[in-house]
Write a protein that binds this DNA or RNA. Structure first.
Lengths: 253, 253
DNA sequence: GTGCGGCCTGCCGTTACGTGAGGGTCAAGC
DNA sequence: GCTTGACCCTCACGTAACGGCAGGCCGCAC
C-alpha cells in the first residue's frame, strides 16, 4: 500500500531530494513510514503535493504554501478556484507583456528608441514610486503632493495591501454599475465617485472636487491607467471620469 | 550624464543590490564609473537590463541569460521575437493548466477523485503508458465513471470551456427561477432540472433519473459543493435538489 | 562645516533545492 | 544462503540569486 519516494517523484516529475526537502521543512510529510524507515505516501499526500506544486509553479514561497494549505477554512475546491483565478491573472499579465513586446518590435523596426520609462512599463506591477515621481512632475510640489508623500511614506506593507484592496473594490463597483447600464450621472455612479474621492482623501491627500476632476481626466488621458481598467470592461475609464465630473458638478450647486 | 544605480533601480523596479549582483557576476556592468567610483549606466545598459529582466521573468538562470545576450548573432529584434514566442508558449502552458484545473473542479464537484497520473498531468509531460490499466484497477466496476472518463479524455480545451459555460448558464437560470419565486416543482424548475440531466448525459455519462436524484442529494450534502452555490444565492442548492427530485417524480409517472 | 541621502565594498544570511558520502533494505538470481 | 543492483535512509556541504547590514566615502544644501 502507498507509494515510495521514487514512485511519487516519477509521478509528479520532481526529484527525490525535493520530496525529502518538503518532508524536512514539514510542508509534506508522508502519511506513514515502513518498519525500516521508508517513506510511504498516501493518496491524500499526493493531493497535497499536487497543490504544493501548483502554488510553487506560480511563485509562492514554500512557507506561504504551507500556510495556505493548512488553512482549515479552505478545502480542495476553494484551492482549485483560487488556482484558476491566479492562472487567469498570470495569463493576463503575460498577454500584456506580449503586447508590450509587440510595441517594442514596432518601435524598433521604425528606428524609434524607447524612453527609459517605456522600457520597463512591461513589468508593470503597481509601483508606488513611479506614481510618486510622476505626480511630482505633473503637480510640481503642490501642497496635495507633499501631504500624499508624507502619508504614504509612513504606510506599512499591510497598509498598502488594504489600500489597493479598497481601490480594487471601488473599481469593481464602478464596473458593475457600468455593465448594469446605470448612467454615469446616476445616483449610484456619483455615490461611487464620492467614495473614490473619500478613499483618496483618507489615504493620500485632501482631494477637492477640482483635483478630483483633474484625476478623472488624467485617467482617460494616461494609457497606463486605461491599460489598468479597459481590459476588464471597455469604456470603463471614460465612465469613471464622467461619474467623477457629474459628482463634482452636483457638489458645485 | 547617465543614470545612477538608484535611478536605474527605481526605473526598472529592482533593488540596488540586484544591480550590484549583476555587476559582480558580469551580467550587466555599467558602461562607466565616475571619478569617485560611482556606477553610471548608459541607455545601452538600460536596454540590456530590459532583456535581462525579461528572460529572468521567464525563469532563465542568469548565466544562461548572459550567454543569450552575448551571442553576437542576435540583435535586439531577434531577442524581441524570441521573447514573443516564449511568452506565447508560456501562455499556452498556463491555459492548459487552467483547463486541467477546470477538469479537477468538475471531477471534484462530481465526487470523483483523480488517479495519480491525472493529478500531475497538469505539469507537462503526459505519459499515456499504463494509464488505462491503472484506471481500470481502481475504478473497474463503476460503469458511469468509465464512460465519463473516456468522454472527458477526448475533450479539447474549447469543449471544456463550452461545458463549464453551459453549466454556469443552467445554474444561473436556476438562480433566476429561485429568486423569481417559482416553486421547485414548477414547470420551469423541472424543465431546468431536465436540462441539467441532459447536460450531464451529453458531456459525462448516461444520467438516469435515479442517478440524477443521487447527484441532487450529493449537492446539498457536500459542503464543497454548497460552497459553490450558496454565496451567490442562499438556499439555491436545496432548490436545485428539490427541482431534480420533482422532475424525477414526474418522469416516474 | 555638518548633516543627510546616496553610493561604495565586503560579508554573512536565506530559500529551495543539487550533489555526493556512507551505509541500510529488499526482491531476484545463482 | 549469499550476492547483486536498484532503491532507500540520514547527514552534510554546495549553489543561485539575491537580502540586509556594517563601516566608510561622496556631494551638496543649509
Amino acid at each position: 500500500m502507498g507509494y515510495s519516494v521514487g514512485q511519487v517523484a516519477r509521478l509528479a516529475g520532481v526529484t527525490v531530494r525535493t520530496l525529502h526537502h518538503y518532508d524536512e521543512v514539514g510542508l509534506l510529510s508522508p502519511g506513514q513510514r515502513s518498519a525500516s524507515g521508508y517513506r510511504r505516501y498516501t493518496d491524500a499526500d499526493l493531493e497535497r503535493l499536487q497543490h504544493v506544486l501548483f502554488y510553487r509553479e506560480l511563485g509562492f514561497p514554500l512557507e506561504e504554501i504551507a500556510v495556505i494549505l493548512d488553512d482549515p477554512g479552505s478545502d480542495a475546491l476553494t484551492h482549485l478556484r483560487r488556482q484558476h483565478e491566479l492562472l487567469n491573472r498570470r495569463i493576463g499579465r503575460l498577454q500584456e507583456m506580449a503586447a508590450a513586446v509587440e510595441r517594442a518590435m514596432e518601435a524598433n523596426t521604425m528606428g524609434i528608441s524607447l524612453t527609459p520609462e517605456e522600457r520597463f512599463e512591461i513589468f508593470g506591477d503597481f509601483r508606488p514610486e513611479d506614481h510618486e515621481q510622476e505626480a511630482e512632475e505633473r503637480w510640481g510640489g503642490t501642497e496635495a503632493f507633499e501631504q500624499s508623500r508624507r502619508r504614504m511614506a509612513k504606510m506599512t506593507k499591510d497598509d498598502w495591501a488594504r489600500f489597493t484592496a479598497e481601490a480594487a473594490r471601488t473599481t469593481e463597483a464602478f464596473a458593475e454599475a457600468f455593465t448594469g447600464g446605470l448612467p454615469a450621472d446616476s445616483e449610484r455612479a456619483m455615490e461611487l465617485a464620492e467614495e473614490h474621492r473619500a478613499h483618496i482623501t483618507r489615504w493620500c491627500y485632501d482631494c477637492s472636487y477640482e483635483i478630483h476632476r483633474g484625476l478623472g481626466d488624467m485617467y482617460v488621458a494616461d494609457p497606463r491607467f486605461t491599460a489598468n481598467y479597459e481590459p476588464l470592461t471597455a469604456g470603463l475609464t471614460q465612465y469613471i471620469r464622467d461619474a467623477i465630473h457629474a459628482n463634482a458638478d452636483r457638489a458645485a450647486d
